[in-house]
Design a protein around this nucleic acid. Structure first.
Lengths: 236, 236
DNA sequence: CTGATAGTACGGTCGTGGCCGAAGCGTCCG
DNA sequence: CGGACGCTTCGGCCACGACCGTACTATCAG
């Protein structure tokens, strides 16, 4: 009973549009300053500050001071997973009025989803991994096959740190825009990290959207057999 | 952007105490009548009815009419997983004021969590499965080992229907009261179902709490090596 | 020191939404 | 058919909380 009340409190924190915008922005995986979050929230600085304080009190986000800036980030991976869960329900249920074509083209192409890759690129890589038999995804879970272990090691993905305890974990994360699963979990995070390290993808200046570099285009084509639309060239 | 607004809408639905109580009650896995949910919600029938309408509109719960009753249930497994995610965050973060000793003894001992077993019993079974090497759980995922496949088959668990696509899925679900993971996912559901079929556990009259029967005590002891406290005898 | 920028705290206004009483439908029973 | 029951709809009351204007506290640059 008491736990239900706490559930309501947490949900109510997420249930305000301004706060939801803030959390969605932070789901990009980067820590952002209060000022940047003012822009994301779409309300005044004072109001945003209040929201940030409440989210911090509720342990949904954490704050570090740095000079005269304060950087906010999602508090824990568990919080990120919770938000993914909500977004999955949202993406799932409703052919509601707008089919949300207002989302930025670059965002739909490639973006981060907390700590892994989403959008057309994320779904494409995931499809390739499944098609090549490296990974098997079911409706609500998945696993890395033998060939996948070899594949990831050859690619230089750090499987060690991806095994949070004993075994690599791998799970589908329903893509908000594509309405199909992309690779999440610790293996998804490790793969994304490796793509950054290889210089295949870079964050665009708006933070969450990703640009595929020239070497990335080559690498992704050779490794995953992906041929990417011209659209992802670093326009901005 | 538009997706964030929808996220806020869904979260706001959960963010009301009365509605959170309703959803928590339905997380027992059974469909309940509006009348029963009035009791769970803790508000008047009219108000509850309004809440039920809003939850239905938001696709979080579904309703079937049956005679003069209306049975409500969680709309989809995805919604259930979302709620589990929120409860995991709640159970995770806070040593808040009350260490919630107000929860019913029977509930803490054994209860359903949507479609699988939670509480001391659920955690106990899960620990046993891990200790015997049948199942491996990591922080955010898990898998059934070779010996586990044999074990479950011998127990009569329907592995076929537990493979939602190709492979059995298995994941940890953070126990609200025990603060440790118990077995969730489709394999958790199948195991719970088998325990019901074997007559090892039964729902107590309040719906969510479970009673371990005499044969259940025997079976759980032989199969999992669990020795249960006397407390779970069907008191009510 | 002054001025500029980043961020927070306070106080008052206002709208959304939760709540209940009363009343309205369907369903079942004798 | 009349009445009880299950549940919903309607209307009005009230409060919580989101919002902004103003004012305040850090940090940095010169």
């Amino acid at each position: 009973m008491s736990a239900d009340v706490r559930m309501a409190e947490v949900a109510a924190l997420i249930g305000d549009p301004a706060r939801a915008n803030i959390l969605a922005a932070l789901m990009g995986g980067q820590a952002l300053t209060a000022g940047e979050l003012v822009y994301a929230a779409g309300v005044s600085p004072q109001t945003t500050s209040g929201h940030l304080a409440r989210l911090t009190d509720g342990f949904l986000i954490a704050c570090v001071k740095q000079g005269r800036h304060r950087y906010y980030r999602i508090a824990t991976p568990r919080v990120a997973e919770m938000l993914e869960g909500i977004m999955a329900v949202v993406a799932d249920a409703p052919p509601r009025h707008r089919p949300l074509s207002k989302i930025d083209e670059a965002m739909r192409n490639a973006r981060t989803c907390y700590d892994h890759v989403a959008g057309k690129l994320g779904v494409g890589m995931t499809d390739a991994l499944c098609a090549l038999g490296h990974v098997t995804l079911s409706g609500d879970g998945g696993e890395v096959n033998e060939s996948g272990v070899t594949f990831f090691q050859k690619l230089g993905v750090d499987l060690q740190s991806a095994r949070s305890r004993r075994r690599i974990f791998c799970r589908p994360c329903l893509d908000m825009t594509e309405r199909r699963p992309h690779l999440g979990g610790s293996i998804g995070a490790a793969l994304a990290q490796r793509c950054f390290d290889l210089g295949w993808i870079e964050r665009m200046r708006d933070g969450r959207a990703l640009a595929v570099t020239a070497s990335g285009r080559r690498g992704l084509s050779e490794t995953f057999g992906l041929s990417l639309e011209r659209a992802e060239s670093p326009v901005t």
